[in-house]
């Protein structure tokens, strides 16, 4: 028995080493950029990082990213200059961030290639409505130049009534923890493929209210009551097939709402990767065309 346990432990150590080496050799991990929390408490990427991101468990897609001077994935460095050119801001989570696609094929670039405007992209994995409101409010002076603010939201973005930086967010921006994490590629592999999340969820308490529309509407009310955003500039982008109608009504009462459901459901081609629910190149083209059609209502050529 003693020998069996020792041998099992020995094999476990060998296994960890083997997996670490093979994951490094085959590059089955992501060069996820370093995170930071800025002076206003916004979580962002540390500026000026470049690398490759893979999508799919078997590296089905490899894409290039570039973090700009403002901490977001974009080929543009943001200057927020006052000029006559129309400027729009695109806010959202990983769907807007677009690590799954080369950065020079981002939604913003696709828009700018077709119409003469400047598109600032503020997508960040894990951003919800509270994070976006906080980002806009704390950068009010810079974002004044934006003519319109597009916010992409989905059903899971309304689970908070106030914005706070969680311990988890603090931990992952901590240099020491981050360095340790980055040096264990097997750990990065486990994290990227959802194993760590699965284990965490086993021990996490879930609020029973989290899926109730009224709970989400309460959160939206709390967030907008405490904000000073100019809602006339805001345009929400949603998929009505995935958001409760009561929430859509609430968003409609606040600002203009654009629904992408039809353009996606009528598409002849797949709009996501299949093995990953994020939009593929075609999906991004549909979104950018959708925004362009809306912008054409405002722009005078």
């Amino acid at each position: 028995m003693k020998y069996f346990i020792l041998k099992t432990l020995g094999f476990t150590i060998f296994l960890l080493l083997f997996l670490e080496i093979i994951i490094r050799i085959l590059h089955f991990y992501n060069d996820v950029p370093l995170r930071m929390i800025d002076d206003y408490g916004n979580e962002k990427w540390v500026p000026f990082q470049e690398g490759y991101f893979y999508t799919g468990t078997k590296k089905e897609t490899v894409s290039k990213y570039r973090i700009n001077n403002f901490g977001f994935n974009s080929t543009l460095n943001y200057s927020f200059n006052h000029s006559d050119t129309t400027k729009i801001g695109l806010f959202g989570d990983s769907y807007i961030e677009g690590f799954n696609q080369d950065v020079d094929q981002s939604i913003g670039i696709k828009i700018m290639n077709k119409i003469p405007i400047i598109c600032y992209e503020f997508g960040f994995s894990g951003y919800d409505f509270a994070s976006i409101i906080h980002l806009i409010e704390t950068n009010e002076s810079k974002f004044k130049v934006l003519d319109r603010i597009y916010i992409y939201l989905n059903n899971s973005d309304f689970n908070r009534s106030t914005y706070t930086i969680s311990n988890h967010q603090k931990e992952r921006t901590n240099t020491l923890i981050s360095t340790i994490y980055r040096n264990f590629k097997f750990l990065m592999f486990l994290n990227h493929n959802g194993y760590i999340k699965t284990i965490k969820e086993k021990f996490r308490f879930h609020s029973k209210n989290i899926d109730k529309p009224n709970y989400k509407i309460h959160n939206i009310n709390q967030l907008i009551n405490n904000s000073h955003i100019d809602w006339s500039k805001v345009i929400f982008i949603i998929d009505s097939s995935e958001i409760d109608s009561l929430i859509i009504q609430k968003l409609n009462s606040l600002a203009k709402v654009l629904d992408i459901t039809n353009i996606f459901s009528k598409s002849k081609y797949k709009t996501n990767f299949g093995y990953d629910k994020h939009w593929n190149n075609h999906g991004r083209s549909l979104i950018s065309d959708f925004i362009i059609r809306n912008e054409n209502n405002y722009i005078q050529y």
Binding site: F11, F14, L15, F18, L19, I22, I23, F28, T57, K58, F189, L190, N193, G194, Y195, Y275
Partner: peptide, 18 residues
């Protein structure tokens, strides 16, 4: 032998995340 076992574990990790 150990390398073969570890390769199987790796394949399980890859497939299981799907």
């Amino acid at each position: 032998r150990y390398s073969l076992y570890a390769s199987l574990v790796f394949a399980i990790f890859i497939a299981s995340s799907e």
